[in-house]
Structures are given as C-alpha cells and as structure tokens.
Design a protein around this nucleic acid. Sequence first.
RNA 1: GAUCCCGUAGCUCAGGUGGUAGAGCAUUUGACUUUUAAUCAAAGGGCCGCAGGUUCGAGUCCUGCCGGGAUCACCA
Length: 502
Amino acid sequence: MEELTLNDQEQRRLEELEILEKAGINPYPYSYDKTHNANAILTEFLDENPGLLSNVSVAGRLMSIRKMGKATFAHIQDESGKIQVYFKKDDLNEFYEQLKNLDIGDIIGVQGYVFRTRMGEISVHAKDAIVLCKSVKMLPTPKEETDETGNKIVHDAFADKEQRYRRRYLDLIVNSHIRDTFIKRAKIISYIRKYYDEKGWLEVETPILQPLYGGATARPFTTHHNALDIDLYMRIADELYLKRLIVGGFEGVYEISKNFRNEGMDKMHNPEYTALEIYVAYKDYNWMMDMTEDLVWNLVNLIHNKSEIEYNGAKINFGKPFRRAKMFDLFREYVGKELKGLSRDELQKITGEIGVEIDPKASAMKILDEIFSVKVQPNLIQPTFVIDYPVEMSPLAKKHRSEEGLVERFELFIYGSEIANAFSELNDPRDQRARLEEQSRIRAAGDDEAMTLDEDFLYSIEIGMPPTAGLGIGIDRLVMLLTGEKSIRDVIFFPQMKPEKQ
RNA sequence: GAUCCCGUAGCUCAGGUGGUAGAGCAUUUGACUUUUAAUCAAAGGGCCGCAGGUUCGAGUCCUGCCGGGAUCACCA
C-alpha cells in the first residue's frame, strides 16, 4: 500500500469487503461467462423483437449507481462502452441486499434480458448478478450529461494531466475516449506490419543493448553489463544492424523498434519512442518515396476513411502525389536566397540578415539545419517530401547521382513536423569510411552527437551491400497526426515522468 | 537547462487588501419499484505540495525545495 493510513472511504470499502465475505460471497472469483459486450447489446437490440436478447450476460466496471428504493439503475463499462443495468428487488434475492456494499469502481457480472426503459435507454434487466472484483480505492467520478442537441457534456472530468499520465489506468477507465487513441495506434502499427509482410519483407529484431551506438546523431543512455564488465548503450537507431542484414542476404527487412535518446522531453519528445525502419535491396530513394507516400495514404484512409484530415485546425490533404521539393529550392522559396554552395561564414552572415539565431560555433551544416527548421519547416503543413540534402548532413546516405555536394535523401514533413527520413543507402565502402571518419573528427572536436565509428559496420559494407533504400518513420508522431493529439504523451500509454519525491 | 503559470476534500474548483477552511459531484444514513448530471432530507470527510521565514496570527506575504503545464533551447 502506498499510504499507510487509509481515508474513511477506503476503510469503508474494506469493511464492505469483509461483509461480503462473511455473507459467503467471494469478492474476487475466478471467471465469468460473458456472452455480450455493451456495444454488441446496443447494436443488436431490436424493439420489434426484444426476445433476441432474452438471456445475456455482461461484465464490467460500475460507473454510476442510481438507487431508487426497491429499484436501482447502474451503468457498467466494459471494453466496448457502457450499458445500463436495471436491478429490481423483486427479481433478485440476496444480491439486491448486497448492492449497498457495492461502489462505483467495482467490477460485476450481470445476467438477464435486454429491454428499453421508459426513458428510451436500452438496458439489461438483471435476473442474476455477481461481484467480480471489489475495488478498495475511490475512482475519479466524472458525470456525463447529454444536452438537447445530443452533445455529451462531461462534468468534473479527470483532467489533471500529471495524474492522468502517472495513473494511466484511471485515465483509461474514466476518460474512455482516450482508449480510442490507443486503439488507433495499435491499428496503425498492425497495418504497417500487414503492409510490409504482404510484400514479403521480413520483420526482424536487432539489439537494443549495443556496444557502440550509431545510425543517428543523438546522445545515448549508457548501461552496464556486469558479467562482461562493459558499458553498453541503448540503441538510438537500428539502421546499422538492419543494413548488416541486407549485407547478409535478406532483401527486405524492417523493425518496429523502441529507440532511446538521452535528451530533453517535451510534447514532441519522449526519451523512449517507437520508430519504424525498413531497408529494401535494389531500390533507391525515389522508389522509397513512392512507397512511403502509398503507406501514409493508406494509413490516413484506414483511420479517417478519406484522404483529407484536420489537425489542430489545419486541413491536411494527403491526395497523391505529395509535394516533392529540393531542399535548396525551399530555401529560395522561404528565405529568398540561394544558399547552395555558400561557405560557413556566408551562411552565418545570412542568419543575421534573416533574424535566425545560431550558436556562434555552429558548423555550416548546423546553420543550414537551423535556417531550415526556423524558416522552412513551419511552412510545410501539407505533406511534403524534402529531397536532396547536403552531404555533410547525412553521413549514411549515398551521393546524389547528378548533383555535386548532395545526397539522395528525403524527409517527409507534415504539419511542420518530420515524420519520415530516408535515403539511398551509402554502399561505397571507401566513401562510407571517409564519412564516418569525418564524423569522428567532428566528435573529437566536441560534438558529442556526431556518430561513432563502428568498424564492424564498415566491414560489412566492405563485404558489400547491394543498392538499398532505407526509411525511418517516427511512429509516435505519425500516430499524433492521425489521431489529432497534440502531445506525444497522449499517444504513449506511460510517458516518462519525473519520479515523485516525498 | 532558462522563463512564466499552477499545486486547497476522492474529482472539478472558490477562497478582495493576512483573522477559526468552502461549494458541487462522489461517500454515509433515511425516503423513493423504468431512473439517467435522478430527486429530497441529514451527516462525515482537509499536514491548503514540502520546509523555513515575516507576523499576535499565513491557504493568503517572502525564500528555498518537490512535482506539473506552457514557451524557449537540444533532438525525432
């Protein structure tokens, strides 16, 4: 028990528990035969033929009780929704007496027939009922009202975000609509699996504990393996392992992986988050763009049954094809200047002119990145593939086939947020070694986010990787977009929170 | 990490210039055999986030700390 002292209501519930037991009732029985969920009853009931549901059993959590002497109405809530239950003293012997020992929050099973009340609500008339779990703590108790226009008004909603995140189970019980967000999340992930599996690509698992971390620029979590007495890092990306599998002969592999990044938290970042990465041999980034577009289009239609959605007041149209724009063209469009080929100092001068603040020590790459995120990115509301990045920004991407100084890379932006990142994967071992060595120099110069040099990965590239297209998608952000949620914490069941200190 | 705002009953919230802690819902008792934010009558329930300080007196003023939210910085 968290608290040593019980409040009066907790004490009372424990007393009720004992009363039930003394009456020979097990408040925690082992199973219950449930024939229907709440939603099934509501959809299957026919006023012309109520006999169809003359004997059903439902089970769920008591969410409201309205006692009227010798009759009692209650709502129980199961996974599918709520159903009203009607208890009539004459129809129930000892259970009606036990009703006074039940509270909101207890789980019960009810068997009886379905009917429509005078007030018009489809309800289960109880012939028998049983306690399935006695709750000994109070539940936050919102009340719902339906106004004349049919809108639901919730009173005293359990709205404290901190409590909602820390005690997600309460949030799920009481704010039942948030359940939908997580059901959609599960649908999205399972659709992605189906989409890839049907194409014959293999879902794989690669190490979360890695002796060297790589595949992205980010600070890792460090942990320690006792038997080996070595430090290990929790993965920041699975890219380097998935490419090893392509080297090994698989021609399409994907992983839906938890990545861990030791960085700040806010409504777009949780220290652990879910990424999808996929690598397909003999393909390039153009092909991957088509595939990404098709996948995202399908997901939007899966969730919304149409290809235009509204997010935070903005209409977003996923009609194919998505806009495709070269990075430096976007700079011309939104900054009004040609930034291609400019030196670091020239870029810095421009930041002053256009009012973008940068770290005075920032590299040319970082300055470009900063200008992009301040001046360009917020304008990319409609789905936009930004393509062809400077080589320095992308140490794992293949040099552009026709444009000097660029790589074949795209990122998909929607509502100003980066959803996907992909490239024609670099498979020239000489170039790959040179790029990672350059990263090591940057790292040695003090940028602890630059990539580490993974000799085994280089070895695998030296063995030879076929031409390959690779893609990463931030699943949490995609789910946010598709469910309309504004904070990553609302699409993760248990977001990271600071521990509460006494 | 920085700035601003917030923390009072199980939940949602009130508590001008400091003066014995409030409401609605929830809970308890009673009435009520088709109610629905059920209703009516009565009752119980609080380390006012934590710790200091100012004061005769602090929920209220000051300082520090803990937790949260928003914005910014880093990142996906």
